[in-house]
Simulated assay, not measured.
Amino acid sequence: MDSGHRQRTPRTPREKYGAELRLRRIAAELTQEALGEHVVCSPTLISHFEAGRRLPSPDDAQRIDRALGTDGFFARWLQDLDTKYADHFAAVAELEQQARLIQQFALSLVPGLLQTDDYARAVFRSYRANHRPEDLDRAVVIRTERARVLEGPDRPVLWTLLDEAVLRRRVGGGQVMAGQLHRIAELAEEGRLRLHVLPFGAGAHALMQSLLTLMSFEDAAPVAYVEGLLTGHLLDEPALVRESQTSYALALSDALSREESLALVRAAAEEHERGQQH
């Protein structure tokens, strides 16, 4: 690629949906405000649809089709885009499928791509006040399906940086936790991920305020993703992505070596198996 050509931001299916909606709205000579009146929603929500940040409901999509005279086009396309993920994470899950390099940092729990079924079930159970077994089963299956991106010859290069707190917090009991840590160690030993641990002894570090995922692509600009309770932010502004990359590099520089990290993960797994607490 010509070094003088600015790389595009990767487009997810929902962003393509939004771009097509914008083109059809402009062709119909409607403003966002005018389309919002037809759909019975705010112009801001139309803006979110067009930017790919939100998807319309099935009823909204039908009203869009009527307003634009698109004969069910957007309602039919929406069925293919109906996502099983939360709105703030749906685009991230799509981009994981395109990434050639994923660098993830976890502050307090094992990243979703690496979670075992038992660990994931314990995580989901912890924040659902009235959980039903079938709901937990579905959530675990969805998370397991995400991890398939790590299988096959075209899987992305995966770097995983874990705060030591991830190893020490006993999720699901000693045996579940031990199984989870052994799984991470096995993936590292097989060369399927590059593993580093930030020990408590490192003190303050550049990522101690948030989890972070960086994704790089063959034909698009890199992105960063940060997440908090019930919310997440996908960052594509070049300056913010560069700052996120710098923070990751700084934290990585404070981490243990691969060999030391693997030994610590294995030792923590054995401690959980013996029921020891920290």
Rank of each mutant, 00 (worst) to 15 (best):
L150K: 08
L150A: 12
L150D: 04
E151M: 07
E151S: 08
E151Q: 14
E151L: 14
E151Y: 07
P153Q: 12
P153D: 14
P153T: 13
P153M: 10
P153V: 12
D154S: 09
D154Q: 09
R155K: 12
R155N: 09
P156Y: 05
V157E: 12
V157T: 14
L158M: 15
L158P: 11
W159G: 08
W159M: 07
T160N: 06
L161N: 03
L161Q: 03
L162I: 11
L162C: 00
D163C: 09
D163K: 01
A165T: 15
A165Y: 08
V166P: 02
L167N: 00
R168I: 12
R169W: 13
R169V: 11
R170N: 15
R170Q: 15
V171L: 06
V171I: 15
V171H: 02
G172R: 08
G172K: 05
G172M: 04
G172Y: 08
G173L: 13
G174P: 09
Q175M: 15
M177S: 05
M177R: 02
A178W: 05
G179K: 11
G179H: 09
Q180C: 09
Q180K: 07
Q180W: 01
Q180V: 13
L181W: 02
H182A: 14
R183N: 14
R183D: 12
A185M: 04
A185N: 03
L187I: 10
L187M: 15
A188G: 14
A188P: 10
A188N: 04
A188L: 11
E189H: 10
E189G: 09
E189R: 12
E190W: 10
E190A: 15
G191T: 11
L193Q: 04
L193C: 04
R194G: 11
L195S: 09
L195D: 09
H196T: 06
V197T: 05
V197S: 07
L198Y: 08
L198A: 08
L198M: 13
L198S: 06
P199C: 07
P199V: 06
F200G: 02
G201N: 09
A202W: 09
A202H: 03
A202G: 10
G203Y: 01
G203D: 02
G203N: 06
G203A: 01
G203C: 04
A206L: 02
A206S: 04
A206W: 00
L207F: 01
L207E: 03
M208E: 15
M208W: 07
M208N: 14
S210L: 06
T213S: 03
T213Q: 06
T213F: 00
L214H: 02
M215G: 04
M215V: 09
S216V: 06
D219T: 14
A220H: 13
A220Y: 05
P222I: 05
V223H: 00
A224I: 00
A224N: 02
A224C: 01
Y225E: 02
Y225I: 01
V226L: 11
E227C: 05
E227F: 04
E227P: 03
E227L: 11
G228L: 04
L229M: 08
L230C: 10
T231I: 10
T231M: 10
G232N: 08
G232W: 07
G232I: 05
H233S: 12
H233L: 13
L235M: 07
L235A: 06
L235Q: 00
D236M: 01
D236W: 04
E237M: 12
E237H: 13
E237T: 10
P238C: 00
P238F: 00
P238N: 01
P238E: 02
L240I: 11
L240S: 13
L240V: 11
L240G: 05
V241A: 01
V241P: 00
